[in-house]
């Protein structure tokens, strides 16, 4: 079968293939909404909002704090980490999952709690990280939020919690569930202390986080297009065995049904919070 066999040596590559290739991987991103090709740097500079169609991508916990705070901030309880109380193993051990997430994101669990200034007004802000096991709430997230609430109460500082979470963390079982009660009890005290609390719901906020602190703000506001609900869309579809209507469980849907005070674009978020706090406190 000599016809198909190259008899001479293969054509020499002038340079190794690696050097000639233009590396475009990870430089460009296709917008989920308008399908436009966006340069990643542009997206980052625009706080992860598509410059073409204003679609809001997820914003990391640290970037969120950069967006809201004037400058630096004082992080609280950075070194709280999970103990894996159930010794939970699924396709891989929960401890391994935790280690991987910690390594990837450089944070102890799915939330940063911090004290800082927003338009020169001191406040406490909690910012959730979806990249850390789906932003799920286990004992550490519950404890950090509770401590943040108690700190806000003690210092009489307004509280802002930016939620971005799939809900309670399955790998900590009923302990995760009890965090809903713990945080909500602390919010009852904050309410009695008459300290303002603004809840910001971002894409996605579902399950136990929606069914506790995310829905308990003096103001509940959300980013455009964010998925917000109690049960996830897949669970509902399985239960009722039909397709869900267009736009179901979006921020706009919740606004229409009376569960949000406003849908605020990311670029206006800081101004909105500052203004609301002025109206509450000034």
């Amino acid at each position: 079968m000599a016809w198909f066999k190259r008899e001479k040596k293969p054509i020499e590559q002038p340079t190794p293939p690696d050097e000639r290739r233009v590396r475009t991987e990870g430089l460009w991103i296709k917008c989920d909404s308008c399908r436009a090709i966006v340069w990643k740097k542009d997206l980052e500079n625009n706080w992860q909002v598509c410059p073409k169609c204003q679609h809001h991508f997820k914003l990391g916990a640290t970037r969120r704090l950069e967006l809201l705070f004037d400058g630096g901030w004082l992080e609280q309880d950075a070194h709280l980490t999970s103990t894996d109380p159930l010794g939970f193993v699924d396709t891989k051990p929960y401890v391994t999952r935790l280690k991987e997430a910690q390594k990837k994101l450089g944070m102890g669990d799915a939330i940063i709690t911090a004290e800082g200034f927003l338009n020169s007004r001191p406040l406490i802000c909690c910012s959730m990280e979806f990249g850390f096991i789906g932003g799920s709430m286990g004992a550490v997230v519950g404890e950090k939020v509770t401590r943040a609430i108690e700190l806000a109460m003690e210092k009489k500082l307004p509280l802002v919690i930016v939620s971005c979470s799939g809900g309670a963390r399955m790998m900590e079982g009923t302990i995760s569930l009890m965090q809903l009660a713990k945080v909500s009890a602390a919010l009852a005290r904050l309410d009695e202390a008459r300290v303002p609390y603004i809840s910001v719901l971002t894409d996605p906020t579902t399950g136990g986080v929606t069914a506790s602190y995310a829905m308990l703000g003096d103001l509940n506001i959300a980013e455009p297009g964010a998925l917000i609900g109690f049960a996830g869309p897949r669970v509902i579809e399985q239960t009722i065995r039909q397709k869900l209507p267009e736009g179901f469980q979006t921020a706009e849907f919740l606004l229409q049904h009376g569960f949000l005070d406003a849908v605020v674009p990311r670029k206006d978020l800081k101004t909105y919070i500052a203004n609301a706090l002025d109206l509450f406190l000034a």
Binding site: L180, A185, F230, A231, I236, T239, F248
Partner: peptide, 22 residues
Amino acid sequence: PGIDAEERGQAEAIARNLREMA
């Protein structure tokens, strides 16, 4: 977990109970 329950604020109803029961 149904459409009507979500429309009427399942999460809000639960959250409020947790806070008020405390």
